[in-house]
Structures are given as structure tokens and as C-alpha cells.
Amino acid sequence: MSVDYAAQILEGSHRAAARLISWLEDEDERAYECMRKLYPHTGRAYVVGITGSPGAGKSTLTTALTRVIRKSGLKVGIIAVDPSSPFTGGALLGDRVRMSELADDPDIYIRSMATRGFLGGMAKAAADVVRVLDALGKDVIVIETVGVGQDEVDIVGVADTTCVVMVPGLGDAIQSMKAGIMEIADVFVINKADHPGSDMLCAEICARLDMDAQLRERGWVAPVNKTVAVEGVGLDEMWLSIESHRKYLLDSGRFYDNRRERISREALRMIHGELFRVVREQLEQNGRLDAAVEQLMNRKLDPYTLMRDIVTDWLSSSQCKRRRDEDTQS
């Protein structure tokens, strides 16, 4: 590698970070060398997730919140995720439009990402991108998810504080409260509070939170904030809520528990991904997969045995041993 992107990123180069992120998105091998170097420098930034239904005002809020955060001098990284088209593989990344007033502040880095088929309201590489922005020196990283339904809650796997944005008058409040989205909120934001019905929505959420609190003991009850993101109203309070959640996490020790859990989950996920990739590569190359599928079709073989055999074979294979040797050398 001719250019040391990792070193440049540690010096704050947006351009180097941008390139590394592209490699991560493309799962380009060149990324991992850099990521190894950057890892020791990560874990410092605080990660805020902004999620909610399409058009709830996530981008507007992200922009307005960033303005508030910047007042305290903190540097901000923004990841804005939009869906890829399942048909063409392309994507229209429109969140940045709302953020253009932030575009030429050198202490803000905004990256639009497409989901590239990854479900859950996030881009696959998002967790890695968080690390890049962290290493780049951003103090707070705000992630705007895809406009989500109810199952797309992957944001909790990345964010320290997850803000769930709701809007009055959509009639889906009660609906979504039943589902997972209620569970993941560390902070509730009722945006478009200039629309009628925000008090009612607020009351509904609070009632539901009370009910929850009676059912089980909770150290943290999600505060409910009202905002008018287009007019910048209520953002100071929202930031205070996020900060007090952070304080709660730190005081209660949950912060490290969460991160430990996350790191373990991620490590497993990466191992899983890599194992799968190399095994699959080998099976495809040596033609064993096609042959096995044929046998499975004819019921000459069952997939349970196949799985066990393949794993056993792989572990004792020379290829496996070679990889092990390579890694101890490097």
C-alpha cells in the first residue's frame, strides 16, 4: 500500500477516512489492514442513533442536533443510511440535502450510506464506519437509520443512546408501542410538535412507560422530548436527555456492559462471516457444494451430516492450517 490511510485518518484527514469507508462498503481487502491499525484508537466517541418512521424528521433533527452539539465544541460525525434498490442495486441518498448547511464545517464529517441489501435499517459496514469516524477524532457520532418499520432495530447494536422519533397525527403511535421500537428507545422525541396532537402522543407514551415501570424495575426511564426540528426548537433539551442517558450509563456501569456485549457480539459476527466466506469459497472452488446439493436433492445425503462433515474436514484441512500459520507469522 503506497498511502498510509490509517496514519492520515489519525491526523484527521476526511479524505483518507472517506476512501477507507468506501473500501469497507465494498468489503475490499485493503480496508482491513487499516482497520487493524485504527482499532486501538477507537472506543472513545459517543454514538447516538436516530431512528423512526419514514419522514418523521430524522435528517432535520440530526442537522439541528448537530448544530447544538457543535456549540459545545465537540466534533461530530454523521452517518446517514438510505435504502438501496433491490432491483437495480443503486441508491438515491437524499438525507444529505437537509444537512447541507453543515457541509463546510471542517469539524463535521457526513457520510451517506446505502443499505446494499442489508436489512435492519442499517448499512452492513456501519459499525466499522463508526470506528473510522471515531479514529478520525469525532467526539459524537450520529447515525440516522433508514426510515424504519418495527423490526428494523439494528441501531441498538451500534448506538450508545438510541433516540426514537415519533410524530403526532400519524395514528401509528399505539401500534408501534406494542412492537419492538418502544423497547429500544433510550430517548423519545416527538418531532413536529407544531402539528396538532403532540400533547396526546406525549401522554400516550408516558402512560405506556408508566405501565412498563410497574411491570419491571428499570434503572432508566426514557425521557420524552418535544421538538420542532425545522425551527430548531427543543433541541437543547434533546441533547440534555442524551447527555443524562450517557451519565446514567456511565454511573450504573451499563456503558461498559453494553460495550462489552457489543464487542463480543461483533467479534463473533466477524468470525462467523470470515469462516463462512472461506469455507464457501473453498466449496465453490472444489465443486463439492454442487455435488452435495445434488445428493441432497436425491435424498442420498442429509444436510445435518453434510454440515458436520464439512466443518470437520475444513478444520483438519491443510488450507486451514496454512491460514493459521500465516496469521501467526504476520
Binding site: 435528517s59 437537509r98 425545522v230
Partner: peptide, 8 residues
Amino acid sequence: GEYRPKEY
């Protein structure tokens, strides 16, 4: 204040 509408 200034306004930036969403552009679709």
C-alpha cells in the same frame, strides 16, 4: 429563521 425544505 431560514428554511430548507426536503427535496424529493
